[in-house]
Design a protein around this nucleic acid. Sequence first.
DNA 1: TCTGGGGTCCTAGGACCC
DNA 2: TCTGGGGTCCTAGGACCC
Length: 419
Amino acid sequence: MPSEGATILHADLDAFYASVEQLLDPSLRGRPIAVGGSATGGVVLAASYEAKAFGVQGGMPGWRAARLCPRLTFVRGHFREYQRLGDAAIAVLRDVTPAVERISIDEAFLDVSGSTHLFGPPEVIGAMIRRRVREEVGLPISVGAARTKHLAKVASQVAKPDGLVVVRPGTEREFLEPLPVGLLWGVGPVTQQRLADQGIHTVGQLAQVPGSVVEPLLGTAVGHRLSALTHDEDPRRVDTSRRARTVGAQSALSRRRPERDDVRATLSHLADRVARRLREKDLAGRTVTVAVRFAGDGRATRSWTLTQPVAATLTLTEVAERLAWSAIEERGPAAEITLLAVSVSHLTTQRTVQLELDLPPQDPWRPGTAPGAARRAVDGSMDRARARFGRDAVGYLPALLGRAGGVPEEFRELAERDL
DNA sequence: TCTGGGGTCCTAGGACCC
DNA sequence: TCTGGGGTCCTAGGACCC
């Protein structure tokens, strides 16, 4: 267990999308703004600190945000700018050390144990990062430093907005004890409520309770993580080479009774998005999962594990269709659906040319009649046309239908991008 | 007046194998 | 005539994160 110092840093851009909007348009500075959504619908993707003061949060329906904050300004996102500026901020971190683990568009862990001889102790490095991102990128960023990733992440949350918090080795318990349990990574609304039901509100109170009491409430994994945290035994290291384990796409739909053509159109659009991304990365996956959300808050998933990995749009579409109808039919004839999702997991790296050498005949859901070679040819020519003329040059017809009511295409591109 | 899209990880039960 | 234990894989659901 390393104990030299607080050499794990977590750097997190503050209210990222909203801060970018305020950077781009000075008239928005100092004002409550929401990125995405509107006063009548949609969802808020991010809120400025001025808006958060009214209780506006990311993920909230627009009409609710407007009610909480009548002077709220809704702005459309500049998603390409988020990509560019997020990358620029991460580039500053990589100047400090190559040991950077980016975990989202706007945050990353750094292990600076090899950099202190160059730049000074962690608090100096943290201050330097914050100054450089402010000066060179124009955005506020908060930094937490501690002996472990989890603690560094908690520290950066405590540092927000626009601050730096260093948890010195030996002071971890003191730091954690007064904090609300909801600040811990992995403790969301449900767990928080379960703990509150037991009278546990702070990390200090949680630490008093024996593991045998907490674990049945939270499950052994969460229980162990929390106990490791409060006993300073979090072993996780900064990992610079994370690989995706699933690739998926989803579409929210206006509430509707599922019709064959409609469902097929949406699923082939989603399958096309997923399969194209798999092929771009020379990946294929054995398990296909479909999720269906029903009106009235029900949700079902169906999955199917094939004997060979798939990356062909048509194969994926066919399997997805069967899975979706299995879930819909089980729900009963009155079911209305509000979302469809397709994802692929059990990913393996493979040259595209080796794929779909056809599923064995004993596979009860052996997809259709087009042989593997024909499917590869179709996908290959689509991929090439898109490479030359852009993504919208060719597409499955539903790709055009699927737009209605959704989020801007640039947002999907931002979300699906590799970190 | 019902709410986006991208993910990760965990759990529990059943099938199957040795 | 019926009883063990351990391991792996698959499926479905759920909590959580940005």
